[in-house]
Nucleic acid binder design. Structure first.
Lengths: 220, 220
DNA sequence: CGGCGCAACTTATGATCAAAAATTGGGGAC
DNA sequence: GTCCCCAATTTTTGATCATAAGTTGCGCCG
């Protein structure tokens, strides 16, 4: 091993701290780290083949977004969710994401809808395959894409940071229950977007979201 | 000059990057920097008497929270709000803060109410005095205190990060219109909390918030 | 008006010092 | 004699700095 900054993410031209940030973000999002697992600077320095400063900056950034948690005694770990936190996350997501979906419905053109449908198709395949990593990736991509369509940078950023908070737990859940029985109300959503029906889009995302968070909650 | 990390904030025992973060946060929040003003690492190094690494980390953190903005060409500035952004900010705040107020109303005890009332009294004094800095500080403290009472860490963190986004503009506005004519629906809110009336608290905060953001919006 | 060069700033490294955590060994209790 | 708990030591990790190298932007000269 000992290759450079990351597996796939490494893009020349970007500053090292940005590359480290993206790698680490993916790591958190798709569950290479489990909740409670300690994150050490030096560990990342070795793992990513980067210097201390970029790693340090990336960690601070992720910490500010809630993806990592700084313990009092200068140690850092992936946050462990409690039931109360999951409920709060659900409440906030329910406050934000339906709004985003509604805006997206107002703005979506045919090309956008096709893109989403394509992602959803890949998602289905991943589910059929039982490919957890694939499910997590495509599911996130679907929502990220949808949110981006809303053209509401602040809300989108917030929604993204929320995702970082439950990503690791989602991975754990998938490991326990497999990819079947996971929510997928995306079909309704795509239909709603195609029809430009904001209210229906909001309801679809609400359903998807509530189901997803419920699975997380039920796994403690 | 050349004293240590910051005017008031400097607390021994805290890591330097934390101290720098707090100083810089206050600087942004209470308008020592105006929107559009460039933020340089070296400038802060000199201004705060800290090393590069802590400053760098603080900047990344604030950037992740939306308090600062990274231009593509590695330059950093205080974000400039557009009308669209202010509207979005208003929408998100309206989605979050009434909820927080409602929760706060459920939990507030007499002591909490007294604390808020005390802050509000100080706020009134600042307004009478025409003390812009005081107004900004106490106003923020009032809302921060209220949000904390809701015992919803995630929502509180989000609300705080939103505040960082319009803080600088709020300062500009105050400079233009003075401290009179600024919204203050805090009396209603304190009453609602004392009565444990969540709906009323939500309405009060909604009003306060809408008025405040309106002032910001009207100043472009 | 376009291109060159200077100056300011950023990025990144590696060394150094400090603080926690992990480990190990000794002493006492049963 | 064995086991457990505490304390000193070792080791790992974090924080910070000084500095080297690389960019960017701007202004000046042709």
């Amino acid at each position: 091993m000992a290759e450079n900054v990351a597996e796939v993410t490494s893009q020349a031209g970007l500053p090292a701290h940005e590359q480290v940030y993206r790698s680490l973000r993916e790591v958190v999002l798709f569950g290479a780290l489990t909740p409670g697992e300690p994150v050490t600077i030096q560990g990342l320095v070795e793992r990513l083949g980067a210097g201390m400063t970029p790693v340090r900056e990336a960690i601070r950034r992720l910490t500010a977004e809630g993806a990592l948690q700084a313990m009092g005694n200068r140690r850092i770990q992936v946050p462990v969710l409690t039931a109360a936190l999951v409920e709060e996350l659900t409440e906030v997501r329910l406050a934000l994401e339906p709004r985003l979906a509604m805006r997206a419905a107002d703005r979506a053109n045919a090309e956008d809808v096709a893109r989403l449908a394509a992602i959803d198709a890949q998602l289905d395949q991943a589910i059929q395959r039982g490919d957890i990593e694939g499910y997590l990736r495509e599911n996130h991509r679907f929502h990220a894409c949808l949110n981006e369509m809303a053209e509401a940078p602040i809300m989108t950023a917030l929604a993204d940071s929320l995702w970082l908070r439950f990503g690791p737990s989602l991975r754990v859940v998938c490991g326990q229950v497999g990819t079947r029985h996971l929510p997928d109300c995306h079909k309704d959503l795509v239909r709603a977007l195609a029809a430009g029906d904001g209210a229906m889009a909001a309801r679809a995302i609400e359903e998807d979201l509530a189901q997803g968070m419920d699975v997380v909650l039920s796994s403690l």
